[in-house]
Amino acid sequence: MSLTVEQLTRTFNDVTAIQAIDLTIHEGEIICLLGKSGCGKSTLLRTLSGLDLAYEGTVSFQDTPLTGVRDEIGIVFQEPRLLPWLNVLENIRFGLKQPNQATIKRVDRFINYVGLTGKAHLYPKALSGGMSQRAAIARALVCDPEVLLLDEPFSALDHFTKLELQDLLLKIQGKYNTTMVMVTHDIDEALYLADRIVVLSSQPGTIQDIIEIDSPRPRTRTSRDLQQVKQKILTTLHI
């Protein structure tokens, strides 16, 4: 097992954002955290990343408590957060501790892998939203993370780019067996990607339901089975 959360509670100025969350995330699994806005999905993800340590309960990675950010846990934010003064290549290299020949080759490989061939020397101002997010994904992957946390990574992108990048994630997961935890409010996205969908209720955020999706990949986005699950989730969320 890679990431475990026990009785996790996080409050901000007496407002409880998430309460008593128990969750075990297995290696190579894709988990989608789904819920209405303000339900604490992103809060949960930030505690998993080690960026937010002011929580109650325990978060452990490979059986040791998480005490801060770790190289094995990569994160992709909602906005690409590329540094505007670095070009694509330098941005993707940014996280490497000691760039050597092997890692530089890795960077080149990932630039091609995420579909940014020929764009290495462009600056962020010249990139579209989709290209920026591809670069952000590559920047996280170059550090060879075992877990990739994604905080609504595609919510600002147009529909077609979104579908392309969802397939990119599946390709990555297939190749590197990366564990992925993704926050989303898009049910179709969760149905297409996830092994398990964690449905969170709002204020305070608690786990309302965990839905396993065992239909094999690649999935058909419009399949009848998935639509039935979608209906079930909508009912759970009282919509």
């Binding site: 950010v69 994160i75 540094l83 940014f94």
Partner: peptide
């Protein structure tokens, strides 16, 4: 703050 956080994420 978002840029500083990027620095934090990459240690």
């Amino acid at each position: 703050r978002k840029w500083l956080e990027v620095g934090k994420v990459f240690g």
